[in-house]
Write a protein that binds this DNA or RNA. Sequence first.
DNA 1: ACCCCCATGTAAACGGTTACATGATTTC
DNA 2: GAAATCATGTAACCGTTTACATGGGGGT
Lengths: 203, 203
Amino acid sequence: MREGSTGYVVLGILAIGGDLSGYQIRQWVEQAIGFFWSESFGQIYPALKHLAAAKLIKALPQANGGRGARPYRITPAGREALRRWLQRAPKTERPRNELLLKLFFGAVTGSGRAQDFLAEAARGLEGRVRAITAAEQLIIEEDRASPNLVFSLITVMSGRLVYAARLEWVRSSLKLLEAQAQGGNEAVLRAYAKAVRQAPSEG
Amino acid sequence: MREGSTGYVVLGILAIGGDLSGYQIRQWVEQAIGFFWSESFGQIYPALKHLAAAKLIKALPQANGGRGARPYRITPAGREALRRWLQRAPKTERPRNELLLKLFFGAVTGSGRAQDFLAEAARGLEGRVRAITAAEQLIIEEDRASPNLVFSLITVMSGRLVYAARLEWVRSSLKLLEAQAQGGNEAVLRAYAKAVRQAPSEG
DNA sequence: ACCCCCATGTAAACGGTTACATGATTTC
DNA sequence: GAAATCATGTAACCGTTTACATGGGGGT
C-alpha cells in the first residue's frame, strides 16, 4: 500500500466500526473524526479497491442482490498492516492557515476586512464547540465500558481545548483592533498584555 | 494568476518585506509565518516566474554581475492584485492531524505508543512556545511604531494561545492514560471532568 | 581538500479535490 | 412528480513535495 494515510484511515474505521460500505465510511469520518480529519469519495473508493486487491479487506456479499451498499470487512492481514502503521511516529502536518495569513497582511487592506474575517471565524468556532460538546456527551454515554473510551476522550478533548483557545484568540484579536482604532499602538500593546496575561501560561 | 495562495504569499512578503530573492522569501516565510504557513522552493521559484510574466513583480538587476541572489520588487499592479485577494474571505483549511488520528485508533496498539507520541508532541510544542515568545518580544520592540503592529500581534497571539492549549491537552491526555492504567474507565472519566473543568469554558 | 551554507532552478511523482456520470430509494 | 438522499464509481486537473542538477563562497 503505497498510499498516504487514506488507506489506513479506512482500515482503522473498519477495525473499530465493523463492516461498512464506502459511503458509510465517509459518514463515519465526517461524524466521528471530522474535526481533525477529512476524506472525499474520490479517495475512499479507489482506496477500497487497492485494499481489497492487497487482501487487507474483503468485499462482503451485498444484501439486495447486487444493488445498494457494498460493505467491506477488514482481514487479519489488514489489522496487522494497521497495527504496524500505528506504531510509526505520526508525521507532523505542515500548517496552512489562510485566515492567519490574510490577517498577517492586514495592513495592506486595513482592519475592516480583518474584523469581518474574525467575526466569521467566531461564528464557525461557536458551532464547532457546540458540536464537540454534543459528541463528548455521546462518547461518555456510549463508550462508558469500552476500551476505546480513553482514546475517544483524548481526541474530543483536543477539539474542546483548541477550539476554546481559538475562540478566545478571536475575541482578543477583535479587542486589539478596537484598541488600535481608538488608542493607536500604545493601546494595542496594553490590550495585548492583558490578553496574554489571562492565558494559561507555560513554565 | 490561476495558482492558489502561493503567489499571493510571495506578493504579500514582497509588499511588506521589500525587495527579496526567492531564497530570502523562503527564509521570511519560515521565520515570520512558519508556524502557520509553509512554502517550498519548488513552489516559490515557479511562482516568481509566473508573477514576473504577469507583471505583478519585476526582477531587479543583480549585484554581482549575474551571480548570487536575484531580487524581485512588487509592482503597483501586484499590490492591487494582492489587495483584491486579501478582500476575499479566506478558505477554511481541511484539517488533517495524523497525531490525533493515531491516538484515536489507539486501542488497536495499546496505550504505550500513545504515550510516546504525546511525549514527543510535548517536546515539539515546548520548543514552539519558546520560539513564539521570542518572536513576540522582537515584534514588540521592532514594530512598536509600525501600522503592522496589531496584525503581527494578532498572529503571534494565535500561536501563543493555541500552542498553550495544545500543551495543556497533551498533559491532560497523559493523565487520562495514567488514570486508565490505574483505575480503568471510571478513573478516566473523573480525570476528564477535572481536565475540562479547568479549561476556559464557553457559554 | 572538504563541508556547509547560499542560491537557483527543473521534473517526476503523488495526493487530493472536483466535476461528472449513473441510478435506486425515500420523502414531501 | 419533484426533490433529496443513498450509493458507487471515474477522470481530469491542480497544487505540493521530493529528488535531482548545478555552482559560487566561506570556514576549518
